[in-house]
Design a protein around this nucleic acid. Sequence first.
DNA 1: GGTTAATTATTTATAGATCAATAAATATAC
DNA 2: GTATATTTATTGATCTATAAATAATTAACC
Lengths: 180, 180
Amino acid sequence: MSPKEEEFKNRKTQILEAAAALFAEYGYYKTTTADVAQAVGVTQPYVFHFFKSKEALYLAVLEQASQRILHAFSTAEAPRAQLAEAMGQAFADLLATHRNEILLVMMSFATPEPAVREYSQREFDNVYERVKSRFEQAGIPEPGIQASDFIGKGLTIALSETLNLPKLLPWNNRHEKSCD
Amino acid sequence: MSPKEEEFKNRKTQILEAAAALFAEYGYYKTTTADVAQAVGVTQPYVFHFFKSKEALYLAVLEQASQRILHAFSTAEAPRAQLAEAMGQAFADLLATHRNEILLVMMSFATPEPAVREYSQREFDNVYERVKSRFEQAGIPEPGIQASDFIGKGLTIALSETLNLPKLLPWNNRHEKSCD
DNA sequence: GGTTAATTATTTATAGATCAATAAATATAC
DNA sequence: GTATATTTATTGATCTATAAATAATTAACC
């Protein structure tokens, strides 16, 4: 998108995007409303014209990201034997296209703001139930355990991306005998 | 421990313990040095007599907790077929005896303070290498993948404990056919 | 089509609160 | 009465949020 088009995208959207990037990198507390404003090119108090509080802004980002994740897991399709892999791929695609949002969601559980905690709780519960239900529908045995493992892999990916520890990535570890 | 004995435990230890509990519950940013001081029963500036900064205090807690975790994974012993389970049990024991510290370590990767990030990076790298190496030594195939999975389970437990989502716990999901 | 009025977009100024950190003073124990 | 433990007083920085002022845009009328 050219700088000119960027100008025309409405401010609320610009603020949401800048906030997603900053919150994902610096977290809730170390990102100031002034940082967000500066990234967009407006003054700090103007942010409050679109979001009634910093918390409301964060929750708006979190909600958008959550819906994207749930949608991805809901729409991935594959026969029983490849369903988990297909859903993993859907997650990887999302990580490639909306990295900020995804990492934000995965780390939000560690943000001790009550409203954020509550939202995270519902979100992870939703994801778990959806994934489990899809595994169930596909006739995969022990869908609950599979769904837990699936979330565990997602958390590991977020950890690995956040701390720059690629060796933690599950999918890079296949065929490790080829080198000592 | 009685309140009188508590008095005699040296202040530095008291501060460390209070900080562990508070940081684990409220995180780095929402825990103030005044909160820590109040929990111990001293004045806020006195905390700085023992730790040169709030960050130094947090890192001291993190270091203690990290060593405990690494030690637990290093000393758990079992024959090949039960090694992973034994190490999981060691983690569960630690969670029971030092819940605050453990949750703090598992969530620290989401604390965007550079020094904390660096410490977390080394810590997770150490844990991964140690676990992998133990699996290797025991002759377990694909030790790297197993170690990643192991960390993923730990993260899932931390998530489940933090957000009060017991259904995410891997070990509760066994035998789920008994009730629909 | 140019002037004015109304509406919307955005800024300036600033209040009010919170916190980490320093330095100097004081109490306590030996 | 010296050393150690702890407090008082305070500074300076940072940040969210509000309210009032101004600039820019659109609409209306003649």
